[in-house]
């Protein structure tokens, strides 16, 4: 049977993608940001840790979804997805290959579990999805695993609640565990941490709040489930709301987890860069 073997979260700042694509990862500005991913790159390359499939939770930044269509939860079910052209041409990264059988299985299973998923086939994937892949896998000719894109609306209000996200994670875990193929599946939650990309409050960073969020992602997800949107907005900036997506990852891992690795760095462009690697305990 398929099983969830680990959860990873990471910010997905577009400038990180640009640094990778332009070969700037070792310059003074970027070096400390990328250094915190060395551990993960080594860990994930080991055969015992390497996932067969990553369920990659991210938000589309007005790339595949414009104002015509705003799905709260959309799961990519096609065989492959191309990198999006976000205004400066598509990133020079590999095509994203899906595990479509598992994706369709998750869609069906979640709908039956009362999560009304939107199924999407034709979709280009933007920096929200491709930047975390670059951070974890570097610059290979092909991504080393299958990737199921799971897009969450965190742009037009209201986005889903943290509790809803956590519960979707639980439903995804049930779906994965009822899939007959023997697969190692990871769930990644992306976006965050504190950042605000607008107005006179732009550039807001709340390191203390972010660190408590990282602590409780491991130790006290019950607190995070109850956190209302307004707290994310006040404390972590208007774009800090992306952190609700991390709770989908956390819900999928089960009650108790072990923290394997953590990295926090200010600043990557406008954003506090956060990254954690968790493993289910049982």
């Amino acid at each position: 049977m398929a099983r969830i073997t680990a959860g990873i979260t990471s910010s997905h700042v577009p400038a990180i993608g640009a640094a990778v694509d332009l070969g700037n990862t070792q310059d003074d500005y970027w070096k400390p940001a990328f250094a915190g991913f060395d551990w993960t790159k080594e860990w994930i390359a080991k055969p015992e840790n390497k996932p067969d499939v990553v369920i990659l939770v991210y938000n589309d930044h007005a790339s595949a979804f414009d104002m015509n269509l705003i799905p709260t939860f959309a799961i990519g079910c096609a065989d492959e997805f191309q990198p999006a052209d976000e205004g400066w041409g598509p990133r020079p990264v590999p095509v994203v290959k899906n595990h479509a059988d598992l994706a369709w299985h998750i869609a069906q299973s979640c709908i039956l579990d009362e999560f009304d998923m939107t199924i999407i086939n034709k979709m280009d994937v933007d920096h929200g999805l491709t930047v975390p892949l670059s951070l974890m896998f570097g610059q290979p000719d092909a991504w080393p695993c299958k990737i199921i894109p799971l897009a969450v609306n965190v742009v037009t209000y209201p986005p889903p609640s943290g509790n809803r996200c956590y519960n979707l994670g639980k439903a995804i875990r049930d779906a994965v565990e009822s899939f007959p193929e023997d697969l190692k599946v990871q769930v990644w939650g992306t976006g965050g941490m504190s950042h605000q990309l607008q107005g006179t409050r732009a550039g807001l960073i709340n390191a203390e709040w972010d660190k408590k969020f990282l602590d409780d992602l491991t130790a006290d997800p019950e607190r995070l489930r109850k956190m209302p949107h307004i707290e994310y907005l006040r404390e972590a900036g208007s774009e800090g709301i992306e952190l609700v997506m991390w709770l989908i990852m956390r819900g999928a891992l089960g009650k108790d987890v072990r923290e394997l690795h953590r990295h926090y760095h200010v600043a990557a462009s406008n954003t506090a860069l956060g990254h954690i690697v968790l493993e289910p305990k049982e």
Binding site: A15, A62, L197, Q198, A202, G203, S269
Partner: peptide, 21 residues
């Protein structure tokens, strides 16, 4: 919305940091 407007400043060759500042 900033994610939509990103297409305008990206077309100008500007980064998020430059536009947001």
């Amino acid at each position: 919305n900033i994610y939509f407007l990103a297409k305008v400043f990206s077309t100008d060759g500007k980064s998020y940091l430059q536009a947001v500042s």
